[in-house]
Simulated assay, not measured.
Amino acid sequence: MNTPKFPSIKQQVILFLHVSALLITACTNQPNASAEVNKEALPEEKNTVEVVTLEEKDFLKEIVSNGKLSASQQAELYFEVSGSLATINVQNGNTINKNDVIADLDNETYRLNMKKADITMEQAKIDKLDALLGMGYTTVDTNYTAEHEAIADIRSGYNQAQVTFEEARLQLSKTELKAPFSGKVSGIKQKPFEQANMSEPFCTLINDRRFYIDFPLLETEISKVKLGQNVSISPISGATNTTGKICEIDPKIDENGLIWLKAEVDNPGQYMQGMNVKVSIKQAISDQLIVPKEAVVLRQNREVLFRYTQGIAYWTYINVLNENENEYAVVAAEGATLSAGDTVIVSNNLNLAHESEVEITN
């Protein structure tokens, strides 16, 4: 029987060292290969930008303020006689016309007073005629002397009856609350059959076809505006923008150094009493180099923009002359050049350096 031969210890050591060397070589080479693959997979990053052509044109210098809308007509309406509410014919937000009846009171007592006054008036007419007959006139006479008629009026109580009649008629008419002008109803709180509260307005009537806007300006800005000048109105609620005109300039400066102006504007359909709006007054300045605000960045605490020429961005110092909501009017700073027709970078310019290579995307 043959006995199996095992490798000697020396042979085992040599085999172990050989396998270890192969493993080390494999592990050492693999990361290098991976790094080479990754290095080849990453493309070179490019600066992509958008540009505009610099133009010389009119610049709209803008003065901005804030104000509130107030209706051109507004009235708090009261019941002037006491009584319980019989009917309320409108709701808050309804649009009504002039002389429409908003609400009325139970008028039974006032109608009876009117009837009594009418009877008293008829009796006074008969008594007046009796007094005139006593002075020698006949029933067919119509021309009386002023003196005789005045005496007859006093003796018959005709004057007093006439006053009582007019007062009763007026009281009856006041049981109806009518609209003094066309507008929208606001502030109704009471309900039918409640006692009318004469110390508080029953409702407020608002004519919202036209609005006034009160807004302030600094005293340094007042020389740039005038009566009749156009203004742009932008509600902060997102309602429709519109335009109006300055109709009033208060001739005094308040304790905060502000001057108050008033503009008048038509309601485009969504404006409401008390709405907050932005007021913009624009003044045209001719022959200005104009760039979007996105074109200007700060470098070393100075304003710069980048001009584009044949794939290269050139750092250019500028001075800002004027600004509005979206644009700057600019000129080249001392030692720099800038002119109409230059191509100016307006995006991805925050991290650009002088003479960076760029690629246009627009």
Rank of each mutant, 00 (worst) to 15 (best):
E149Q: 12
E149P: 04
E149N: 13
E149Y: 11
E149R: 12
A150K: 13
A150Y: 07
A150L: 10
A150I: 00
A150Q: 06
A150D: 10
I151Y: 05
I151L: 06
I151E: 11
I151N: 11
I151P: 04
A152P: 02
A152Q: 01
A152T: 04
A152L: 01
A152S: 06
A152I: 01
D153M: 07
D153H: 02
D153Q: 09
D153A: 01
D153K: 09
D153N: 15
D153W: 02
I154P: 04
I154V: 11
I154C: 11
I154D: 11
R155C: 06
R155A: 15
R155S: 15
R155T: 14
S156E: 02
S156T: 05
S156V: 03
S156P: 05
G157N: 04
G157R: 02
G157E: 00
G157C: 03
G157V: 04
G157F: 01
G157K: 02
Y158V: 05
Y158R: 04
Y158H: 07
Y158T: 02
N159H: 10
N159C: 00
N159V: 09
N159T: 13
N159K: 14
Q160R: 11
Q160H: 14
Q160A: 15
Q160E: 14
Q160N: 13
A161S: 08
A161M: 05
A161W: 01
Q162W: 04
Q162S: 10
Q162N: 13
Q162M: 11
Q162L: 10
V163Q: 14
V163T: 15
V163L: 10
T164V: 11
T164L: 14
F165N: 07
F165C: 03
F165H: 07
F165V: 00
F165E: 03
E166S: 14
E166T: 12
E166I: 10
E166W: 02
E167F: 11
E167R: 09
E167N: 13
E167T: 09
A168G: 06
A168K: 05
A168F: 03
A168E: 03
A168M: 07
A168I: 07
R169Q: 14
R169H: 09
R169P: 00
R169N: 11
R169D: 08
R169K: 15
L170Y: 15
L170S: 13
L170D: 10
L170Q: 12
L170A: 00
Q171L: 12
Q171G: 00
Q171A: 14
Q171Y: 00
L172W: 08
L172Q: 08
L172V: 07
L172P: 06
L172N: 12
S173K: 12
S173P: 12
K174F: 09
K174A: 09
K174L: 13
K174Q: 15
K174R: 15
K174M: 08
K174N: 10
K174G: 06
T175L: 01
T175D: 02
T175W: 02
T175C: 10
T175P: 10
T175K: 03
T175Y: 00
E176M: 09
E176I: 00
E176L: 08
E176Q: 12
E176T: 08
E176A: 13
L177G: 05
L177Q: 02
L177Y: 01
K178R: 12
K178I: 14
K178C: 12
K178F: 08
K178Q: 15
A179T: 06
A179R: 03
A179K: 03
A179L: 04
A179D: 01
P180I: 05
P180G: 05
F181L: 06
F181Y: 06
F181H: 05
F181C: 04
F181S: 04
S182D: 02
